[in-house]
Computed example of a mutant assay.
Amino acid sequence: MKSKVAIIGTGMVGMSYAYSMVNQGICEELVLIDINKEKTEGEAIDLNHGLSFAPRKMKIYSGDYADLKDAALVCITAGPPPIEGETRLDTLHKSIGVMKNIIGSIKASGFDGIILIATNPVDIMTYAAWKLSGFDKSRVIGSGTTLDSA
């Protein structure tokens, strides 16, 4: 398996992940997936423009769930944006609905790697992704709750 990473959700968190991966030369291939394909294409172009300053060459592109088949890692950062005054727990039901769709698409792709969850609330969404996926618990991990704890 090559070092291919997919990021699902190209909002601020997803693009922070992507930018960090480019700057650290984490993978050979980085695929960006989002419901807003046009935005994702623009983000991929922007990241490609910065590759000359990255520590390694990378293939970066806007893709879809079919591109997950040979990925080693999928980072899920997608989720509904909170409405002003809502807490992360207030968005839980909407977030679970989004996660169901994402996990269904991941499973349909034949993906056989690790899922990293950054969608809030992280612990609950990680548990939901694990249960929805049916994957072994070692394959579905959360990014941590330092922000929630603070």
Rank of each mutant, 00 (worst) to 15 (best):
L30I: 08
A108Y: 00
N36T: 03
I83E: 10
N36A: 11
D67M: 10
G97V: 05
E38V: 09
S138G: 04
A18M: 13
I103K: 05
G14A: 07
L116M: 11
D148F: 11
V5D: 00
G134A: 10
N23G: 12
L68R: 04
A118S: 14
K57T: 13
K57L: 06
V31N: 05
A150H: 10
E86D: 11
A150Q: 10
T146C: 13
I35E: 07
S52Q: 07
G11R: 08
I60S: 01
T119F: 02
A44C: 13
G97R: 03
G110C: 11
G104Q: 08
I83T: 14
G113P: 00
S133W: 09
C27L: 09
V140Y: 01
G144F: 14
H49Q: 15
K4R: 11
N101E: 12
M125I: 08
E41Q: 14
E41R: 14
L47E: 02
H49W: 00
D112G: 10
N120T: 10
A18H: 07
G142E: 05
D123A: 13
A108R: 13
H93E: 15
D136H: 11
E28I: 01
L116V: 08
T145E: 12
A6P: 02
K137R: 14
I102V: 13
E29Y: 01
A118H: 06
K2I: 12
S3A: 09
G14T: 08
I7Q: 02
N36H: 13
D67A: 14
D123M: 05
I7L: 04
D67L: 09
G144E: 13
G142A: 07
P121V: 04
G134L: 10
V31A: 04
L68G: 04
I114M: 03
T119M: 05
S95E: 13
D34Q: 05
A129W: 01
V122I: 12
K57G: 11
C27M: 07
G110S: 05
L32A: 03
G79M: 01
G110Y: 09
G14E: 04
P80Q: 09
G50S: 09
G142D: 02
E41P: 02
D46N: 13
F53I: 03
G142I: 06
L92S: 05
F53A: 14
Y65R: 04
W130A: 05
E38Y: 07
C75T: 04
E86Q: 15
